[in-house]
């Protein structure tokens, strides 16, 4: 499968910061989530993708082209939705989207038609002649998505497209983004620091932390059911120490138990055997069960593991 973005040893060094440190990634078609905390390097990677920055070393190819060599030809095929509020307040949504479609090379008549079509697609058809300054945050986020897709790009890059949205608006925005990919075949890379939304809509993920690659691959491989059982107990006074008792009983039955407060992760046997062992241990200890289910690995776990690895590395280094 042809890669949308491919980097090799990509380094971006600013005067005081190494924003990206030897990034090797290959992003296939689909919806890709770019995750990481502030300062992880997400925006730098987006800027390199668009050719706004030149890498210090290493290489990057987007749609098979080098952004620093074939910038104009490449950017004609990319739509970009920035995080910053870049909408001129006194311009109408329709005029803004039409103008950027023209700048991306569409003939005037086509830009007019597609500006309306894009705004209808994102749910702003009836609002398209309103000034941007009078629109809510959710509507302005939709306008940014509309301008990104209006010129019919092959690939769109959306920087924090759900920033500032309430949960309902966020769901609607994510649904539209998925629709853009599934119905029209436009590949998407979206950056976000909300891991749950990336897990929900993305086919692939690139997780960054302080400029380094934490994880990279298909979402189905990185997150989801991971083997084992997770249960949450109610920590009650009577019987006392019921959680401790459940842990001891499970360990005695030959399972491995990781405890975090009243939440237990149980592994070491098949899922069926684990469910039986948990049921028996809870009953024997007289504990109260709040929830029980298959253990799932989340993107949050990926970052937690990374933190543990870095802590371990730091604690080992002084003795070496």
């Amino acid at each position: 499968m042809k890669a949308i973005i491919e980097t090799s040893g990509l380094v971006m060094q600013f005067p005081n910061t190494r924003a990206l440190d030897g990034l090797d990634i290959r992003i296939p078609p689909g919806v890709t989530g770019l995750v990481g905390a502030n300062g992880a390097g997400k925006t730098t990677l987006i800027s390199l993708t668009l050719g706004l920055l030149k890498p210090t070393s290493g290489s990057i190819k987007v749609l098979g082209l080098d952004p620093n060599v074939h910038g104009p030809a490449l950017r004609a095929q990319i739509g970009y939705g920035p995080e910053r509020n870049v909408l001129p307040d006194d311009l109408r949504a329709y005029d803004f989207v039409r103008h950027l479609a023209e700048v991306k090379g569409l003939p005037r008549d086509e830009a007019r038609t597609r500006a309306s079509d894009s705004l209808y697609l994102v749910g702003l058809g009836e609002e398209r002649f309103r000034s941007l300054g009078t629109m809510s945050t959710g509507q302005r986020q939709r306008v940014k998505l509309a301008q990104a897709i209006a010129a019919d790009p092959r690939f769109i890059v959306l920087d924090e497209p759900t920033d500032g949205l309430d949960p309902v608006q966020r769901d609607e925005m994510l649904n539209i983004i998925v629709q853009v990919n599934r119905d029209f075949g436009i590949d998407v890379m979206l950056s976000s620091h909300v891991l749950e939304e990336v897990e929900r809509v993305c086919d692939h993920v690139v997780a960054l932390d302080q400029g380094r690659l934490v994880a990279h691959g298909a979402m189905s491989e990185l997150a989801g059911a991971s083997g084992g059982v997770e249960l949450e107990l109610v920590d009650v006074d009577e019987p006392p120490h019921s959680v401790d008792a459940v842990v001891q009983l499970l360990q005695a039955s030959g399972t491995t138990v990781e405890r975090s407060g009243a939440v237990l992760s149980v592994t070491g046997k098949s899922d069926d055997e684990l469910f039986d062992a948990v049921g028996a241990a809870v009953a024997q200890a007289g504990a109260r069960l709040r929830r029980l289910g298959q253990r799932r690995r989340t993107l949050d776990d990926i970052f937690t593991d990374q933190d543990h690895q870095m802590t371990d590395a730091r604690s080992v280094t002084p003795n070496e």
């Binding site: 668009l50 706004l52 910038g71 104009p72 030809a73 950017r75 004609a76 990319i78 970009y80 920035p82 910053r84 509020n85 870049v86 001129p88 950027l100 700048v103 991306k104 090379g105």
Partner: peptide, 10 residues
Amino acid sequence: GMLAMYLSTP
């Protein structure tokens, strides 16, 4: 920020 928007075009 429109400058960055324009520079993300051709």
